[in-house]
């Protein structure tokens, strides 16, 4: 009588003939739409952010306008070239090119190594694969096992640095409610900075690394009840990580644009009350 113990395992067949048509995909839906939209939005953001980072002006609305609004692309403004009033006490006086270059390394690194954005740009730019069940555009593939893509593993370090930036942008938002020469009040600009800070916190706290560090890394939740509660808090946020990623990306650009328009005198920052 045959038993499980007596059973022999057949050797695995690797390289056998595959079934199905030998073509990149049989999908009939508009599978190309998602990567095209992703590539379009990401490219638009990169173009705008690059321009905004290098233009090095109109990033701060100061006391002369009875406001204290700074673009998130330029905060904290650490360079010697910063507009008076926009920078903290610590300044790199020798750095005379755009201060945004100093700052944007962190959010750029954080988003570039983000698990969600990796999915987005691997699909839309690298076409590896462009969409599910659509052939990879490359002849060979080693994934994230070699340099430079093995550096994706530094994501959590950008997460830590990003938290520091979030604190600074939160302070910027709080400070914006105090209008110099007028007093405390609410303007459209202060609300814009607040929404921007909230979205960035949501994006950071919903990060997969955050979820892991909060409690995902433990083997036993029962032995780590506080970490379990933290994990329970961030897990629902994590489920919306993609939404927060897009919302915060678009809104941070809109925040910069708003501050820029006010600083250049194109529009007036309306005081609500």
């Amino acid at each position: 009588m045959a038993t499980v113990e007596k059973a022999t395992v057949s050797p695995v067949t690797i390289g056998g003939t595959r079934g199905g048509p030998d073509q990149p995909t049989v999908r009939k839906d508009r599978w190309w739409l998602q990567p095209v939209v992703t590539a379009t939005v990401l490219t638009s953001f990169v173009v705008y952010a690059t321009w905004a980072a290098f233009v090095n002006k109109d990033y701060y609305v100061g006391a002369t306008e009875h406001r204290d609004l700074i673009s998130p692309f330029y905060s904290p403004c650490l360079a010697g070239s910063c507009v008076p009033g926009s920078h903290p006490h610590i300044v790199l006086s020798q750095w005379m090119i755009s201060p945004a270059i100093l700052i944007l390394i962190v959010p750029l690194g954080f988003r570039l190594t983000c698990y969600y954005y990796r999915r987005a740009y691997y699909r839309s730019f690298w076409l590896s694969p462009p969409n599910c069940a659509v052939a990879d555009a490359h002849g060979s593939y080693s994934g994230e096992t070699r340099f430079p893509l093995i550096l994706q593993n530094v994501h959590r370090w950008f997460f830590y640095l990003g938290l520091i930036l979030n604190v600074i942008l939160t302070i910027d938002a709080v400070v914006s409610y105090n209008q110099p020469g007028i007093g405390i009040g609410v303007t459209v600009g202060s609300l814009v900075l607040t929404v921007n800070a909230v979205l960035l916190w949501c994006y950071s706290l919903s990060c997969h690394s955050c979820r892991h560090l909060c409690g995902g890394q433990v083997r036993s939740f029962a032995k780590h009840p506080i970490r379990y509660r933290l994990w329970k808090f961030v897990t629902p946020l994590n489920a919306h990580h993609m939404n927060f990623a897009w919302a915060s990306l678009v809104f941070v650009a809109l925040t910069d644009l708003y501050v820029r328009l006010v600083a250049s005198g194109t529009i007036t920052d309306f005081r609500l009350f």
């Binding site: 695995v12 690797i14 079934g19």
Partner: peptide
Amino acid sequence: VAPMRTFPIIRDLVTDVSF
């Protein structure tokens, strides 16, 4: 309706999933 692409075909819609 096609067989799973990743595995060797045995016949029609049946593939060898022993991998």
